[in-house]
Write a protein that binds this DNA or RNA. Structure first.
Length: 718
DNA sequence: TACATTGCGATCCGT
DNA sequence: TCGCAATGTA
């Protein structure tokens, strides 16, 4: 099979340029996945590398699976043993092999955000910091930022500036110590610990850098500093690193992604070859031109010119809708019409939105119209209480030092072990310098316990020990069932007759089924591996793209996907760009890229909805169309229903005048050129988000965004 | 120690 | 609007 046959010239070059660093700047829809798959197939078929000498990093586990399928289709079943997956799954694998050197035993537990939060709270409590004064989630995000930037607690402390950072700096080292003590890793550790391992142990570096003759990284624009450092180290021997990405699609800056990794690739790898893939095979000329017009407004980007031989296609439809219900109905109607008139399967549609909260109304509308749909994300299976509880038992069984999991389940279901007993356990553990989990085997030594409490703890300890020994003789799926049974969880749920309890039982059943599925699929179906998969699974991994249903997902989840018909819901100021980004130029550029990613998912049609108002956290809030819509030239747009009745080209008032909430009170009088003089009935929000409800003469009441409404204040005061 | 009630606060994107 | 944390009561 000629692996170059169906490729265009730059694609051929990217596949054939195997030696030395290579950066492929791949525009949206330019066939980068194809290039990666062909490149791997070429390396294997030319026998330049064995499968286990190739490292391919993808952005999702699903993408890794699809890559393996494509390679298999090209050169047969050779992908077994290949290092292919997300940064996190690859690092996890590496750590189970090499982690011991840094005191990470292979049965380590991965802490998710909930676990991290509990741990931070514990640490903060020990420091006497009140969670109401210092938000644990805020502390955690600073720590995560530091870790993904490879800053140790010491380094962070040195550069900590204000009082806030200084307090974070006191939590950080203790948080790290607590993780190590529990033999647990957070998501950042999965990357940073391998980096320290490779950076600090020459023999480990040598072994692993020698192994990986060829390294490929997809979605390179969304790697963070730690991930960059990891691939830099791993590629140091052979230097055959191929990074593929598009700076215009960098949408994870908030998670530590550093787009300079792509912008500076040529500086970091001096003899790097750069290849641009600029022909788009995905979108129509109209969609491509419109999206280019949007993204070109960004300042921080590499200039590029995408082109396509695809037909011009139809215009982008922008429609104003009253609120979220109407928005849902509009989308549902459009789907029905397409399905009917053009015999489109439901799988051809996707509805994209900025926030998961938007999915509710959209979902409802589709359900009302009896349109099959699937939601990606939202309430995750593995985040349900009963599932997290059972998983916590499994984690404790797998890793006896896991203190967070123990705290979660020591009294679930109720077994009479309350706060008092647990704090005596903690106290004893602290005195002995071990974790609470380890103390479970030494309950008799804790003198502060009352006889009843001691007995109950012993019983619980027996359960855990029994499960631990069962875990050695039973496969994962059976163990899950045993956990549910021996922990008393099943009985506890069966006692209740509520619908909720029934559904929890079903979910546990589903987890058992998942365990069986895992055993059949996995080469090494160990408990640790199962727990790793459960921790690292992504919503999008579970999404079945062959299902004939309309997909609903966030713009972030849509990265790398394509659909014939794309709806983007809620293209409004405050949603996209999200209001939290209003004051930061770089964040605004990221929001623009996010919108660009949304547009470029479409092959044929784009529908955009703009709601005139939405239910906010406290009532109805008027909305105005996104500034990004103005960047799409009129020639590419067909507006069905007007969407910015209050929007005028020149806001009369300088922003200053609206800067303070106090300026306009209820009862203030204002004048509007069309509506005349009116009285303010209600004001919500402040600054640029100030919204007023005004009653004008003739019983006309209007809700307006003050920033855009052409209002003159007659008697407002400071 | 368990459970009910009240009150508050935080509201995006997700490995 | 909702979920969770602190508080009060059996």
């Amino acid at each position: 099979m000629d692996l170059f046959q169906d490729l265009n010239p730059p694609q051929k070059e990217a596949v054939g340029h195997t030696e030395g660093p290579l950066l492929v700047l791949a525009g949206a829809g330019s066939g980068k996945t194809r290039v990666l798959a062909h490149r791997i197939a070429y390396l294997l078929s030319e026998a330049r590398a064995r499968t286990d000498q190739i490292l391919a990093v993808t952005f999702t586990n699903k993408a890794a699976g699809e890559m393996a399928d494509r390679v298999r289709a090209l050169v047969g079943d050779v992908s077994a043993g290949m290092w292919m997956g997300t940064f996190h799954s690859i690092c996890s694998r590496l750590l189970r092999i090499e982690g011991r050197r840094l005191g990470i035993s292979p049965d380590f537990t991965i802490y998710d955000e909930q676990d991290q939060k509990l741990l931070v709270k514990q640490v903060m409590a020990d420091l006497g910091l009140s969670p109401s004064k210092l938000a644990p989630s805020g502390v955690l995000s600073r720590i995560s930022w530091a870790k993904s930037g490879l800053l140790t607690p010491d380094e962070y402390a040195k550069r900590a500036l204000g009082p806030y950072e200084k307090r974070v700096a006191t939590v950080y080292p203790l948080y790290e110590a607590a993780l190590r003590m529990s033999n647990a890793l957070d998501f950042d550790d999965l990357i940073t610990i391998p980096v320290r391992l490779l950076g600090g142990h020459p023999e480990v570096l040598e072994r692993n850098a020698a192994r990986f003759r060829y390294i490929l990284i997809d979605e390179y624009q969304d790697t963070n500093k730690a991930q960059y450092e990891l691939v830099r180290l791993l590629s140091s021997t052979h230097r055959n690193i191929c990074a593929v990405g598009d700076d215009d699609q960098s949408i994870y800056r908030w998670r530590g992604a550093d787009v300079t990794n792509i912008l500076n690739f040529e500086r970091d790898f001096t003899d790097a070859k750069v290849i641009r893939l600029e022909q788009s095979y995905r979108s129509t000329k109209t969609i491509l031109a419109a999206s280019q017009a949007v993204i070109q407004r960004n300042k921080m980007r590499k200039a590029k010119t995408l082109w396509t031989e695809n037909p011009v296609g139809r215009k982008i439809v922008v429609s104003g809708v009253g609120g979220e219900q109407e928005e849902g109905r509009f989308i549902a109607d459009a789907v029905e019409q397409f399905a009917r008139e053009e015999s489109r399967g439901h799988g051809q549609f996707v509805v994209l939105y900025r926030t998961n909260a938007q999915s509710r109304a959209l979902e409802e509308a589709l359900r009302k119209s009896a349109i099959p749909y699937v939601i990606v994300g939202g309430l995750k299976f593995y985040e349900r209480k009963e599932i997290k509880d059972i998983i916590a038992y499994l984690k404790l069984v797998s890793n006896p030092k896991d203190s967070v999991s123990l705290a979660r389940i020591i009294n679930v279901p109720n077994r009479g072990i309350g706060d008092v007993t647990f704090s005596r356990l903690k106290e004893f553990a602290a005195d002995e310098g071990v974790t609470t989990g380890e103390v479970l085997d030494r309950v008799s030594e804790i003198e502060s316990l009352k006889p009843g409490a001691r007995r109950r703890l012993e019983v619980f300890g027996d359960i855990v020990r029994e499960l631990r020994s069962l875990s050695e003789s039973h496969p994962v799926a059976e163990l899950i069932g045993l956990v549910a049974e021996k922990s008393g969880y099943l009985d506890h749920l069966k006692q209740q007759t509520t619908i909720e309890a029934m559904s929890r039982l079903e979910n546990i059943q589903e987890l058992v089924a998942g365990g069986y599925e895992f055993q059949e699929r996995s080469e090494t179906p160990t408990l640790a591996k199962f727990l790793e998969e459960v921790s690292l699974v992504m919503d999008i991994d579970l999404w079945d793209d062959h299902r004939e249903a309309v997909s609903l997902m966030t713009l972030h989840n849509a990265k790398g996907l394509e659909f014939p018909i794309v709806f983007i819901a809620g293209v409004e100021e405050g949603l996209i760009p999200h209001h939290t980004s209003f004051e930061d130029q770089e964040e605004l550029e990221e929001e623009r890229r996010l919108f660009y990613v949304g547009l470029t998912r479409a092959k044929e049609r784009v529908f955009i909805t703009v709601a005139l108002g939405r239910r906010g956290f406290q009532g109805w809030m008027p909305q105005v169309g996104s500034r990004f819509l103005e960047d799409i030239p009129d020639e590419f747009v067909e507006t069905i229903t007007p969407f910015h009745e209050e929007r005028r080209p020149a806001p009369v008032r300088d922003h200053e005048d609206w800067g303070e909430e106090k300026i306009v009170h209820t009862g203030s009088r204002v004048r509007h050129p069309d509506w005349g003089v009116g009285t303010v009935l209600m004001s919500e929000g402040y600054g640029e988000q100030l919204r007023l409800t005004v009653r004008f003469g003739g019983n006309v009441t209007k809700r307006v965004l003050a920033r855009y409404a052409n209002l003159e204040i007659l008697d407002g005061e400071i």
